[in-house]
Simulated scan of single mutants.
Amino acid sequence: MPRRHAPLPSTLSTPFAYAEARAMGVTAGRLRGSDLERPFHATRILTDPATRSAFAGPQAIDARVRARVLERARAYSRVMSRRGFFTGMTAAALLGCPLPDGFDPDADLSVGTVHPHRAARARGVAGFQTREHLAHVMDVGGLRVTTPASTWAMLGGELSERWLVIMGDHFVRVPRDHRGRAMPNARLATPAQLEAAALAPGRRHRKALVRALTSVRVGSASRLETEYRLDAEAARLPHMDLDVEVRGADGALIAIVDGMHRAFDLIVEVEGDHHRTDRAQWNRDIDRTAALAAQGWEVVRLTSRRIRDGSATSVVRSALHRHGWSGPRGH
């Protein structure tokens, strides 16, 4: 029968510092309990296997990964120097960026300090020292995190050019509210801010950042959308407008589409897995496709499989030719 652990004080939130718990009267023996994880020196996290095993499906798995990074960052923040801040891929996860396949939420946290203060040295932490003008810091849910532009620029030597574009697109996109209205003040960064961060004096990997910046565009709302766009550009498909509002003759909004080849009456929609698994979303997609068709648009819907296996550009190329495009037919 599993051993029952003595309850922790209700005022002790998890994660917590060892010293914090001891000050509340928790015994050293209780703090060695098997239900408490010790991710960093002098910190504890109350484990909850049931909650972690509840995640299933791509979106939920992504949420689990981000929740784990946040949990560990909060734990380390209990003992982190007041001069420290999260950066690199840790900051990217905390800022909601798309994360590369195989990203390990239990990898060392990336923690920066500004010269002349020493880099952090601790188990589970990758510390480094930088200059103040290269790492601007903001508050994210009570954590000190590099700003989106600084985070992006500081990943120049860690990510491929393709991934720098994916993350750049994420940072510069203009979110929309539940009614589809653009909210430019809610965007995480502007292209000009990314450029300024890349060109800051002393910035390492500047050439890679500048190359990636030439491909960053406002309008991609997901990793899949950016990946398809980059593949379409490499395949020499014609220019595609992004995040376009489609309205009827009366001015009423019919849809906001991922991509549009306006000259060829063709719309491209990139469908994440939730379009398949969410019944309400599935029904909305069907209704919207019918409404667009009634306005004379052909809608090409691209699944993640199509994009990942490279066949998406061929599908769109064929549709473009049906609508009069005379570009290369490819292979």
Rank of each mutant, 00 (worst) to 15 (best):
A291T: 05
N283V: 12
R305W: 09
I286W: 02
I286V: 15
S304K: 05
G272M: 05
H274G: 00
H275S: 06
Q281R: 15
V316P: 06
E269N: 10
E271W: 10
A312L: 11
T313G: 08
R276T: 02
I307V: 15
R308A: 14
I267T: 03
V315N: 04
N283S: 09
D273T: 12
I307G: 06
D278V: 04
V315I: 15
A293S: 13
Q295R: 14
I286L: 14
E298A: 14
W297D: 01
S304Q: 10
A293H: 10
E271H: 14
D285N: 12
A290G: 01
V299E: 03
N283G: 00
G310W: 11
V300W: 02
L292I: 02
R305G: 09
R276N: 01
W282A: 04
V300A: 12
G310Q: 10
R308L: 13
R288H: 07
V300H: 05
T303I: 02
E269S: 13
A280W: 03
I307P: 01
W282M: 06
T277A: 10
G296C: 03
R276L: 13
G272A: 10
V268Q: 03
D278H: 07
I267H: 00
Q295S: 11
A312K: 06
V268G: 05
R288Q: 09
T313Q: 13
A294M: 09
Q295N: 03
S311D: 11
A293T: 15
L292T: 02
Q295T: 02
T313I: 11
W297P: 00
S314R: 15
D309N: 15
R308D: 14
W297T: 01
R301F: 02
R279N: 01
I307F: 05
W282V: 00
D273A: 14
R317S: 03
D278I: 04
Q281L: 13
G272C: 10
T289Q: 14
V300P: 07
V270W: 08
R279D: 07
A294N: 07
A294G: 13
V270F: 09
D287P: 00
A312I: 08
D287G: 13
A294Q: 12
D285P: 02
R305A: 14
A280K: 12
D278T: 09
V299P: 00
V299F: 06
G272H: 06
V300G: 07
R276H: 05
V299K: 03
R317L: 04
L292M: 07
V299I: 06
S311Y: 08
Q295V: 01
V268W: 03
I286R: 14
V299W: 06
R308C: 06
